[in-house]
Nucleic acid binder design. Structure first.
Lengths: 217, 217, 217, 217
DNA sequence: AATGAATGAGGATTCATTCAT
DNA sequence: TATGAATGAATCCTCATTCAT
């Protein structure tokens, strides 16, 4: 969708533009992002952005697509086919948090995509990303039930959704002041969460969710 | 915070303004909401809004505060002190879904508040609302443990957060196309969710979450 | 087509805006006319124009319609039903030249409408104006033939067209440097045409055209 | 006026550039013609145009000059010194229509040149072309009078101008929707004019104009 | 208190022209 | 010589806010 010109410029520049655009959209949202300011921030002329993209919308969609791909490969890029649901949950939360630390902007954009205004531009794109995770979790839960390591009475779909809900809210807490405050409120964390805090809570969340899955016996 | 003038107009008018403003902000987001269009849809003159509110920001904050209050009283207004955590979860999900159906605009605004752009204006306001729910859930969980109806090994705070995560995502699915698509993806619901679908999934979610709490016995 | 606001402002202002807009479009053409400069020239703020008109196009169309109406009433407003073709030609050329002197901008806009670029916006509008003149001339020619004061072998339609061709080119010469130079070239007028020159040539043209119509006797 | 470079490129390319530039200016007018789009349609790089011409203006002037030369040679290139005014009128209308069919773009440019915006760039150029026709018609009219085949009382200059007025308007009708509609309105032609229609009207026009010249017998 | 015309800073986009390769 | 990426002034239009009535 971007213009050919985008492929004819140095990779470093292309990446810088995408990075700064993602950061800008994440910081201020689509509507409040100013193309002139964005260009300045990228170190290029206002008109140059329009050599690469038809419009602000196209740039936004491209940034989202890029983030989605980066996210997918960061979270699920190196899973082991042999893992079970417990290992997958563990991996998902760890790699997810890692990705959110490296690229908080994409998590913000993900949250924006769920909010109002530009949903229509990106929802399909992002739902595609959800599908990857949904399929993975559902598959592993089914295997776990078959293997007798997961409670037989669990509704696989619903359980996958519930697990992912907390995953999403954890990542949200890493990039959104509101969701961070909410999480600290629930978890009685008085001060801004340190990386250490996050790791601890991530581990506890993993363990608690895992404990929900285990057969009662 | 609004001007005194707001109290000198007919209640019907005041409510209409708040309702339409909430709808407008919910539909398009803060930045993309046009004060002129908003005035038109309220049936009042552009200038009149500025007789009641200092600025667009103040109006937005007031709408949020209003939504927060409506939400709190809708969800927790008529709880019974004698209920246990199972009854509270049941009540929260039921009244929450009911509220989201009656006032989807406030859920949208809540989600926006968690996204970028205008976080700073409303986060404290909305976190206050979270606190009410957090305290309630944590209290009941503690009581449940004491009463022997909840697993003793549960981390009360984390459990409350996890429960509420799914609550938030369920309500989000009712007002955001993106989160609806996500939920349908997880739950294998091929078509737009009917009220019936929502009720069914709400019940299943309640039961699954409740099952996580029960002692293994 | 303009917004209601246009009718809610003082007549003097409304007329000033229309006048200046017509002058601006006439001077520079549609594409080269700058809305900001136009506003300045009208003594109003840039945004104000957009309180009256949806867009530059709408303003342009409105100016054209206005010019067309002014032109029609100026040229054919006070004809006498009893006149014959000779009197009508005389009247048309006289009132046409008078109108072109009072409102050269509308003649320029007429010529632009025949040129490239914005034809589609105004052609129907302006052809409507032509129709008035065409019908008038054709009617009178037919009457003249019936009354025996016009050559019987004349093709009425074609004759009307030929008469009007020179009418158009005469008015064009009054507002367009190019068509003035062309006319002076043909008529051996070395210097810029004075009002006197124009009157003389108008009279000669009238007489020559009239002489073409007379029966050979 | 163009740079020397223009002469160092293959003739085919040079002609293609001129042709496409003429078409582009004719289609959209000077101001609305986009140099980037023009380069694309010429099949050359944007920068290359500036290797041949200093600026858009210079290119435009060059295109006009080229059109003027083509027009002159097309219309008057192969006249016979022995022809009289009747033959010249006949020839002028025939070759003019033929030229307008082959190169409508130059007629459009001619009309634009008479309108606003870029008059100053080309008027002298184009008036030069008019002079050729004016001189020819006036000469032949004078000869006609001397030879007794033209009414002695005619004002030679004015007659030449009147003849040419209809010539201009006929060609205009071939390239401008507005002037075509106007002509159809006058001549009661309900549908778009076919080549056949045009030929018929051209013949009638020639004959009618010629009839105006003939001595009363 | 209500109105809506007026304002002008700001924002997305265009485009003639330049210049490094 | 040819190319096309880069530039930034220019342009259309928006919109929160003001203020005279």
């Amino acid at each position: 969708m971007p213009k050919d010109t985008l492929n004819n410029i140095p990779q470093e520049k292309r990446e810088r533009i995408l990075r700064e655009a993602a950061l800008a959209f994440a910081e201020r949202g689509y509507a409040a992002t100013d193309m002139a300011a964005l260009a300045r921030r990228c170190g290029i002329a206002k008109g140059s952005i329009y050599n690469y993209f038809e419009s602000k919308e196209e740039l936004y969609v491209y940034v989202c697509r890029d983030g989605m791909e980066k996210s997918r490969s960061a979270v699920w890029g190196d899973t082991d086919e042999g893992w079970n649901i417990y290992q997958d949950i563990d991996h998902m939360f760890r790699s997810g948090v890692e990705f959110a630390r490296a690229h908080p902007e994409f998590i913000s954009i993900y949250l924006n995509a769920g909010s109002t205004g530009v949903q229509h531009l990106t929802q399909d794109l992002i739902v595609e990303l959800e599908k990857r995770t949904a399929d993975q979790l559902k598959l592993r839960l089914r295997q776990g039930i078959n293997d007798g390591v997961v409670r037989k009475d669990l509704d696989v779909n619903l359980t996958a959704w519930i697990i992912n809900n907390s995953y999403v809210m954890l990542l949200a807490a890493l990039v959104s002041r509101h969701f961070e405050l909410r999480m600290r409120e629930y978890l009685d964390i008085p001060n801004a969460m340190s990386a250490e805090d996050v790791s601890v809570q991530r581990e506890r969340t993993i363990q608690l969710l895992q404990s929900f899955l285990r057969p009662k016996s």
